[in-house]
Design a protein around this nucleic acid. Structure first.
Lengths: 265, 265
DNA sequence: CGCAGTTTTGAGACTGATCAATGCCTGTGG
DNA sequence: CCACAGGCATTGATCAGTCTCAAAACTGCG
C-alpha cells in the first residue's frame, strides 16, 4: 500500500518497467529539504519549474539496486530521505564503494550525460527518491541558467568528494582512513542536521565501510576498535559517537570544509 | 620572447599578477583540437561565442604550478597542448595525484563553482593553455544551453575518471594498477591521436605514476619491470610500447571505454 | 666530465590481508 | 518462550604484498 514499488529483494533493477508515480507526493515547495538552510533558496519561479519536472516519488527498500552498471535509466533521482551508495565491482567480486549518497543528492547525472552508467547504486537504507524523467532535464539547460549552473555545481561537488576519497585510499594509513571517513560522514550529516550532538546514526556495516576505504573488513574492525580504545569514538549498534573530534582531526589530517549553501534539484 | 609567462622555477603561482595575453593566439575556429573528431563539432555561432570568451594563451614550463590548493583563480584554462596533473598533498608531504590532464581538458571549474580550490594543478610538460576569465563563464550558462550542458558533461567525465582511479587504488593489486593505468593513458592518448601505433610518449616519471596509483616508486618500478619481463610492455626513456594489449586487459580487468565525441570549450 | 634527477636492485621490516573461529544480536518458527 | 539461523562484529594467528632504506647504475644536460 505504501511503497508502491520495488518489491526489492536485493538486486531488483529499479525502477521496474512502467513504474507507478506514487500516490501522495510532496510538493516541491513543501519539500522538507528546502527548509534547511544547507540548501540554497529557490525562487518561486524555480520552484514551480522544478515541480513541473517531478514525476513522482519512488520508495525503495534497503538493498534495492537503483542503478546497475552498464544500464541506462529513464530517470534521474534526488534522494529525499535515506542513504545510498555508489560502487563498482570487479569480475571476481572485489567491490569499491565510491561514495555514500545522502538526502539532497542527485543520482544518475552520468546516465543522462553519457549513454550508460559505469557504476551501480544501491539503497543502503530504505529511501525515498524524487523522480525526474530524463527527457525533461534538457529543459533545465534551455530555460534556467541558474539551475544549469547548479547541475554543474552538483557534479563538481561530487568530484570533490571523490578527490578526498582518492587521497584517503591512496595515501593514508588504515587508521587515518577510518578517522577521516568518520569525520567526513559526520560533517555531511551535520550539514543536514541529522546528528544529535556528537552522535550520529550510521546505517552502514563495517564491511561496507571497508569497501569504501579499500581495506579488509577485519582490519577495519581493528582500527575502529583502536580508535575506541583511544577514547576517540564509540560505535555501538549503529550509533557512532565522536568523543574527541580534535584527536581524530589530528590523527587524520582532516580539514573541515567550509559549507556554503548548496543547490539541490 | 616566446613564453610570455611564468618564469617557472617550480612552484611559481600562475598566472602571476596581471598576466599578459600572449601575442599570437590561435582563433578558436582554427584551433587544432577542433579538427579532431574526438571532439564534438561547434556551430559557427558557438565558435564565435567561445572566441569572445578567450582572453589569450598562456604558455607555462613543465613544473609550473597552475593552481595551488586553497587559492582562488581569476581564470579557467583549457589545455591546448601538453600534460598537467591534479594532486593533493598531506602536511607531511605524501602526495596523491588525482588525475592527469590532456589537451582539450578544462582546468579550474571547481574554482569557478566554489570559492576556492582544494587541490593543486601542475604542468607536467610545457603546456599551452587557453585562458578564460572567470567573470565571463556565467554568460555560458546564460546564453548557451548546449555549452552549459557541455560543462556538466566535462565535469561528469572527470568524475568518471576518478571513479576508475578509485577502484584501481582501492581494490587492485599493484601489478593490476600499473597495467590498468597504462591502458587508460593509452586509450586517452589514442583518442587524441597522440599515439604512434602501439607506442606512446609518456612524460611522467615512475615516481609520478606511483603517486597516482598509491604505490611507492620502488614497487611501481618492480611492477613495470615485471610487465616488461612478461613481454607485455616496453618502457624506455619516455617511450612506452604496449606489446600485448590483450594480456594487460586480462591482467587488470580493464574495460575499453566507448568513446563518443566529447565537448571541449 | 660531472652533476642531478631518475631508474634499478637487494634486503629487511611491517602494515594490512587472509584464514578460521567464536561471540553476539535479532528475527523467526516451533 | 525457547531454539535456531543468519548476519555482523570481534579476535587471534599466520602470511604476503608492499614499503622503507640504502646503494648503485643510468641518463640527459650544462
Amino acid at each position: 500500500m505504501e511503497n508502491s514499488l520495488p518489491q526489492a529483494n536485493n538486486m531488483t533493477l529499479a525502477p521496474p518497467g512502467g513504474h507507478a508515480p506514487s500516490q501522495k507526493q510532496v510538493k516541491c515547495k513543501d519539500c522538507a529539504l528546502r527548509k534547511s538552510d544547507t540548501f540554497r533558496a529557490f525562487t518561486p519561479k524555480e520552484l514551480e519549474f522544478v515541480q513541473s519536472l517531478k514525476r513522482g516519488e519512488l520508495a525503495a527498500e534497503a538493498g534495492t539496486t537503483i542503478f546497475l552498471e552498464g544500464q541506462n535509466s529513464a530517470h534521474l533521482y534526488t534522494i529525499l530521505s535515506g542513504w545510498v551508495f555508489r560502487y563498482k565491482t570487479m569480475p571476481d567480486g572485489r567491490r569499491q564503494i565510491l561514495n555514500f549518497g545522502l538526502p539532497g543528492e542527485l543520482l544518475g547525472l552520468q546516465t543522462y550525460v553519457f549513454k550508460e552508467l559505469d557504476h551501480s547504486v544501491e539503497a543502503l537504507t530504505d529511501v525515498v527518491l524524487c523522480v525526474f524523467p530524463r527527457e525533461k532535464i534538457w529543459s533545465i539547460f534551455e530555460n534556467y541558467p541558474e539551475l544549469s549552473f547548479d547541475l554543474t555545481w552538483i557534479s563538481a561537488r561530487s568530484e570533490n568528494l571523490l578527490d578526498n576519497n582518492l587521497l584517503s585510499v591512496g595515501r593514508m594509513t588504515a587508521i587515518e582512513r577510518v578517522a577521516h571517513a568518520i569525520l567526513q560522514i559526520f560533517d555531511r550529516l551535520d550539514q543536514l542536521e541529522m546528528n544529535t550532538g556528537n552522535v550520529a546514526e550510521i546505517p552502514f556495516t563495517q564491511e561496507q565501510l571497508s569497501d569504501a576505504l579499500g581495506l579488509s573488513h577485519v582490519h577495519t574492525n581493528k582500527m575502529i576498535k583502536e580508535l575506541a580504545d583511544l577514547g576517540h569514538i564509540d560505535w555501538q549498534s549503529g550509533k557512532l559517537k565522536v568523543s574527541d573530534r580534535e584527536a581524530l582531526i589530528k590523527l587524520s589530517g582532516y580539514e573541515t570544509p567550509v559549507d556554503t549553501p548548496r543547490p539541490f534539484i
